[in-house]
């Protein structure tokens, strides 16, 4: 069954708190049209946003554009690592201090920390419905998504030759490239531990380690694949798409596994921490057709509202089948790091 929702993985999360068991990507096409910025009310007043580091410059461009469009609106921004900001919010709440009105996080785990602490304000139904049905949550709004992929060398392999199981790759003859020290890879291994168990994951890591070429980062993996140093690698989708954007004839394409950690998804998202219309209306700006298109075309992130094109080069999202997983658990990397160290990977 290939057409389960991409975002089903998020369905299992306690973050969501609402129906997520149906389709995600598959239902985007059936969702209501996205809203243009021209349909939104002007923002008036002042907000403080805690912004987790991500595509720094491009997020900043979005925030500046929103302020430029709303002369009566002032946005104070505190920037930092997403997890650290989440912890700050918790600490501030415990101390009875409230400084932030919004929290824009680059990963779902940090959003879970904040929503679990009871800091998130419910979002109105009309905002939730701007997102496609599979992406609708009462306490936070996804902004964009990303997916784990298998970049492969198109001169050496065809998509049909690539196993659709991440575990099966350990038994295949393909030459593999990976970046064990890379944070995204460690999140992927954490997902595998949660989905398959520690023993299976450890055995898989050992098997891959016996045959894989190690790179410093995941762009390096994609470049190694493109140069033919390895046949296939593990990386987030945007490295390959951005490489192809700069080098259209690059000998690399993307393959996807089926219902396992190899096609793990994660999302950036935003939480309203204050009551009132202003924080909610600010979130509406991030969900406009214009902002979603901008982040898809400039940052190669996956838009999560209807009728906005995905980044070019990404497979039809309705055909992807990511695993069900509580992404909040990805926040704790320590058991993964310990496992990887125990077999000499780090």
């Amino acid at each position: 069954m290939q057409r389960r929702a991409f975002i089903r993985g998020l369905a299992a999360t306690g973050i969501i708190g609402s129906g997520f068991g149906l389709s995600g990507f598959a239902r985007i096409a059936n969702a209501a049209n996205s809203i243009s910025v021209d349909q939104l009310p002007k923002l008036t007043g002042e907000l403080t946003l805690y912004l987790g580091r991500g595509e720094g410059g491009l997020y900043e461009n979005v925030l500046q554009a929103i302020q430029d469009r709303n002369p009566g609106f002032k946005l104070n921004i505190r920037r930092g690592a997403t997890a650290a900001l989440a912890n700050t919010l918790i600490a501030e709440a415990k101390a009875g201090v409230k400084r932030a009105d919004l929290f824009w996080a680059v990963d779902t785990g940090s959003i879970g920390v904040v929503t679990d602490a009871g800091l998130a304000k419910p979002l109105p139904q009309d905002l939730i419905q701007q997102l496609s049905p599979g992406f609708q949550y009462p306490l936070w709004s996804p902004v964009t998504g990303r997916i784990r992929t298998l970049p492969y060398n198109t001169d050496r392999l065809t998509a049909a030759e690539i196993p659709d199981s991440i575990l099966a790759l350990a038994d295949s003859d393909v030459k593999i490239g990976w970046a064990p020290a890379y944070a995204s890879f460690q999140s992927f291994v954490t997902a595998m531990r949660l989905l398959e168990g520690d023993k299976v994951t450890k055995d898989w890591l050992k098997a891959i380690n016996g045959k894989a070429k190690k790179y410093a980062g995941e762009l390096g993996v994609v470049m190694g694949v493109e140069r033919g140093e390895v046949d296939i690698g593990f990386a987030n989708h945007y490295y390959t798409l951005r490489l192809k954007a700069g080098k259209p004839d690059a000998s690399v394409s993307l393959a996807y596994t089926n219902n396992d950690a190899g096609c793990l998804v994660n999302a950036s998202g935003i939480v309203a921490l204050s009551d009132g219309e202003l924080p909610v209306n600010f979130i509406r700006y991030l969900l406009t057709k214009e902002v979603q298109s901008y982040l898809a075309s400039e940052a190669y992130e996956i838009p999560l509202v209807s009728d906005v094109a995905s980044p070019p080069g990404l497979q039809d999202l309705s055909t992807l089948n990511p695993p069900e997983l509580d992404l909040r658990k990805l926040a704790d990397l320590r058991p993964t790091i310990n496992m990887m160290r125990s077999i000499g990977l780090l």
Binding site: G56, L58, A216, G217, G220, M223, G246
Partner: peptide
């Protein structure tokens, strides 16, 4: 990491080189 995405499109080999330097 916050800027490498934009740089990849412009000069992927330069980014890879710097990744190796950093790591």
């Amino acid at each position: 990491e916050g800027i490498e995405g934009a740089l990849i499109e412009l000069d992927a080999e330069l980014v890879e080189d710097l990744e190796k330097d950093f790591n």
